[in-house]
Write a protein that binds this DNA or RNA. Structure first.
Lengths: 232, 232
DNA sequence: CCTTCTTAGTGTTATATTTACACTAAGAAG
DNA sequence: CTTCTTAGTGTAAATATAACACTAAGAAGG
């Protein structure tokens, strides 16, 4: 069967989406990478991504690629930036619309290699060399995450639904790269009234168990409309 | 002569850039629009923009389109967001990478119709109905401008190089949509040490003339690297 | 049962920042 | 010389931030 060809009067770049998927474990901020199975950059690690179809929006394309390549359930997906350097793909001109996503690492098996390619979580601090301009995209995503986490409550997307105050503080310390004062942090976070105190405590710890909380998304959305600004 | 055709194995969207150009006069925040000369949306007002060529980056494409369609000297150009709704262009699938630009309105003739199409400045508050999804793009740009102006010194790109404290305050009041206290505003702005006090005063005013200042970009960049954060 | 170890949980004080607020001075116009 | 308009200036109260240390709980191990 003859492959259909699509012809245009003027040449046009291809459009892809690429996703920076962040997760968080006890130690580190992690990024999900996929090992390339074909040229160019065969064997190198790269961001999950692929071509945008004609019948899907950019957001849909990003979600589809994430589902296909990682099988992850995404809590948060947001457009990051579009990258259009001329030689960013050695094969042909490709413009990519980059996204970044936040997932709850604990809720997912560490390895989910859905289509024979290797996928793995890497610490954001010690990444392998990446294909294309993916290092640059990843750096942009890290910068965005670090600035956004301070004035939007997106950090909760990285935590289990129920979490301790220590976990959320460690999250901020990890992402912002500095230590925070425990009492001031708790005062500020609890003072916003966005955490619901649960009658549950963490388990399996060799010390006093901490109380669990959950983030009250509804209340945040309500307050947000009234001009409330989240800020850490 | 036969027009060359470009063929691809898979269909691909076209890629355009569109620019929201902001200017500021005494009264209002203004946006530059171009009246469309051809279908679709013939006669409607639209953002300046056009197709991305294979041999130019996205930024270059935005600058080229601005030069071609408006002839403006751009002080500030930044990528805004990429819009990829499937039906946003009735002719075919078009993904657009939107930019926003800031210009010094005073330094430009009010009308600069370089290629027979009408261009005009509209008050951001009372816009005509726009072609495509340009209303949506423009709203996104307004939101971005309003949030960015508070923590980056981009407002100065909209003012003459030498300006009075009243002008910069009015700029913030216009963009943020609320009044600011004169003394507190001056204290804060001068306290940052980023304004150079000139031995010049405004002219042609029917009242006491105000001192002129200029923004010290160099100093800002230096401080910025050392962790200084601009904030109004 | 007792000791040890680790983290949970909690207030106060000093400092810095933000807000609210009103008058005199300068200069142009008539 | 009067009027009109904007320039230019300081203080005090309220609020937010930053610094800082101990007791309590509970598991582990002897």
């Amino acid at each position: 069967m003859m492959a259909k060809q699509y012809s245009y009067r003027y040449p046009r770049p291809a459009i892809t989406v690429d996703c920076v998927v962040f997760g968080l474990d006890e130690e580190d901020l992690k990024v999900l990478l996929i090992q390339r199975g074909s040229e160019p950059f065969r064997g190198d690690w790269a961001l999950p991504g692929g071509f945008v179809q004609l019948d899907e929006t950019l957001d849909d394309a990003a979600m589809r690629e994430l589902a296909e390549e990682t099988g992850l359930r995404i809590r948060f997906l947001e457009q990051l930036y579009s990258f259009g350097a001329i030689e960013r793909d050695p094969r042909e001109r490709v413009v990519t619309v980059a996204y970044y996503a936040l997932v709850r690492l604990k809720e997912h098996p560490l390895q989910a290699s859905t289509d024979a390619r290797d996928t793995a979580w890497f610490s954001a601090c010690c990444l392998p060399s990446l294909a294309f301009d993916h290092q640059h995209i990843l750096q942009t995503a890290l910068d965005r995450l670090r600035s956004k986490v301070r004035y939007q409550p997106i950090g909760f997307e990285l935590l289990p639904q129920q979490f301790t105050l220590r976990q959320i503080q460690q999250l901020y310390e990890t992402i912002l790269g500095r230590t925070l004062d425990k009492r001031n942090f708790r005062k500020k976070l609890l003072g916003m009234g966005l955490l619901v105190e649960l009658d549950q405590w963490e388990t399996d710890v060799a010390h006093r168990a901490a109380r669990l909380y959950r983030f009250d998304r509804r209340k945040y959305q309500r307050l947000s409309k009234q001009g409330f600004n989240f800020e850490i």
